[in-house]
């Protein structure tokens, strides 16, 4: 009964959407990279860097949207490093990605200490506040659940639409998908596989960084060292869960976030008194693994994912 009450409350769904937002940004970013044929394991580090960059830029005096832009650009830059190593040089995407995560994470902590020496509590910024969309926010249940979020959450949903449209309705999107399926086909049509893949990795990494920035600029108003906390790895699973399709990946992100929101609430109910809280913490992950097994059975993996392409090789 308590479960039913939780699932029908607007506050619960509002929380789920809020928790889902950074996942949506980063999942879209990873999806763009993988659709072009590049697995970007730098995602965790890029999110950390984005979280820091956006927050520190606002703290240094930039407007909020300026902070988001800085985060995006930092992501593009880190994506640039990844793409140079993984695309023209054709290095192992696993090694490059994990290396980038380590590099971006430690470089972030280093920069933090250089910029804020002798700070015990990180300073707060004036973060994004919920924006009530006129009329829509007054619809019963749906209004408070969906239309009283911050601007960045709305942006996340717009991003899904943009990614989806671009992938399936524009020549550029077709070229990106083809680069992930058959780079030889792309090259045979006189297009540059290198340029397409590098571009996709850089833009995708920018989206990941904005996902990180959501944590410091919308969910909270400050930066903590372990705040990304494995969300990047979850997003890699969400791309598989979504079968490399933006709409399904969005659904996956919300589902995961809903489980996360649910476990917090369940801990405070009668069940929480009996079951150790660690079980609740595990719940979203266990359920995602189950969902992953069920959903990704028939998924069509981009055929050239993780396959470097060298033109003119004999």
């Amino acid at each position: 009964m308590e479960l039913f009450e939780i699932l029908t409350s607007a506050a619960f769904w509002a929380a789920a959407i809020r928790i889902a937002s950074p996942l949506i940004f980063a999942t879209m970013g990873e999806l763009i990279c993988e659709r072009a044929g590049v697995l970007n394991l730098g995602i965790e580090g890029i999110m950390v860097a984005g979280a820091f960059a956006g927050w520190i830029a606002v703290w240094a005096g930039l407007p909020l949207w300026g902070g988001v832009s800085v985060a995006f650009l930092v992501g593009v830059g880190l994506g640039g490093i990844h793409s140079i190593l993984s695309v023209p040089f054709g290095l192992s995407q696993h090694v490059v990605g994990i290396g980038l995560t380590l590099l971006a994470t430690s470089a972030t902590f280093y920069t933090y200490r250089v910029m804020l020496p002798e700070v015990s509590t990180p300073p707060k910024i004036d973060a994004f506040q919920p924006f009530h969309i006129p009329f829509l926010s007054e619809i019963p249940f749906f209004g408070p659940a969906l239309f009283q979020q911050t601007a960045l959450t709305y942006l996340a949903f717009i991003l899904v639409a943009v990614v989806s449209f671009t992938l399936y309705r524009t020549p550029l999107g077709l070229a990106v998908r083809a680069a992930g399926e058959s780079p030889a086909a792309v090259a045979a049509q006189g297009l540059s596989v290198t340029a397409i893949r590098m571009g996709a990795v850089m833009v995708g990494s920018g989206c990941m960084a904005v996902g990180g920035a959501f944590l410091t600029m919308s969910a909270f108003d400050s930066f903590f060292f372990d705040m990304v906390n494995g969300r990047g790895w979850i997003c890699i699973a969400l791309v598989v869960f979504g079968a490399w399709r933006p709409g399904k990946a969005l659904f996956g992100a919300i589902l995961f976030a809903a489980f996360d929101a649910l476990q917090i609430r369940l801990q405070q109910t009668g069940i929480g008194a009996v079951v150790p809280y660690q079980v609740f913490l595990m719940m979203p992950y266990i359920l995602s693994i189950i969902a992953l097994i069920v959903m990704s059975r028939r998924a069509e993996v981009p055929a050239a994912l993780m396959v470097p392409f060298n033109k003119g090789e004999r």
Partner: peptide, 8 residues
């Protein structure tokens, strides 16, 4: 050897 993307 055809240069076609199979999933498209």
């Amino acid at each position: 050897h055809f240069t076609l993307a199979e999933n498209l």
